[in-house]
């Protein structure tokens, strides 16, 4: 079947979709957006978290056909989403710096890569905070955590630690022990707070 949807602000179509495919599969394998991750495919890890009509969901549990005509934001669209929020005057803080600084990574550049995707060169504040706070190790949980954390900070700009833990309780991380993730979300919230405070 054919599935038409809007992803990160762009109208997209996928053809020959098998009816049992998930939105996650369509994003990763048909639309060139492998940022959403396939860690458990049973809704237990949150690494595939995307926003479906604004709401964070596990894209592995959305049947592809259910996404017909709907709006999806993935990790690849987070920077643009933050940009749109900032333009509306919502608390988002200064834009992050430009992307890769010329240092080589590993892995990411070694393979044949994916189908033509959407490059995101700027970082949203929460993305920048994850990099700065050391919240990224293997990084497989990171995209889902970013989408969830970004949405929480949109709703709750000054979360307590318990609020952060509750909001991120659907996102498993196996590398960090979560402490640096807590640091990152606190940092993003603090920067967001500074950005809306009037200058002295």
């Amino acid at each position: 079947m054919r599935v038409s949807l809007t992803v990160n602000g762009r109208a997209r179509e996928a053809d020959d979709v098998w009816e049992g495919e998930s939105l996650l599969y369509v994003l990763r394998e048909r639309l060139g957006l492998p940022g959403s991750k396939n860690a458990c495919e049973q809704g237990e890890c949150g690494s595939c978290t995307v926003r479906l009509d604004d709401v964070p969901v596990c894209s592995c549990l959305v049947a592809a056909g259910q996404a017909e005509g709907r709006e999806v934001v993935t990790v690849e669209g987070l920077a643009a989403l933050a940009g749109r929020r900032a333009a509306r005057g919502a608390p988002d803080g200064p834009d992050g710096p430009d992307g890769p600084d010329g240092q080589g990574g590993q892995g990411g550049q070694g393979g044949p890569g994916g189908p033509p995707g959407e490059g995101a060169t700027r970082l949203s504040p929460v993305q920048q905070a994850f990099v700065d706070a050391g919240a990224v190790q293997c990084g497989f949980c990171t995209p889902g955590l970013l989408v969830a954390a970004d949405e929480m900070l949109e709703r709750n700009p000054a979360p307590t630690d318990a609020d952060i833990r509750e909001a991120l309780s659907g996102n498993l991380c196996r590398c960090t022990g979560y402490e640096k993730i807590m640091d990152a979300v606190r940092l993003a919230a603090a920067r967001q707070g500074e950005a809306v405070r009037p200058c002295p």
């Binding site: 009816e19 049992g20 998930s22 809704g43 592995c60 549990l61 959305v62 049947a63 259910q66």
Partner: peptide
């Protein structure tokens, strides 16, 4: 029938179920 998909899609992803018809209620 599939609405939130939180039960049905797990069964489909893990090959526990292959219904002839999946009916979206969304």
């Amino acid at each position: 029938p599939i609405a939130g998909g939180t039960d049905v899609m797990v069964e489909i992803n893990f090959d526990h179920r292959r219904p002839e018809h999946l009916m979206d209620l969304n």
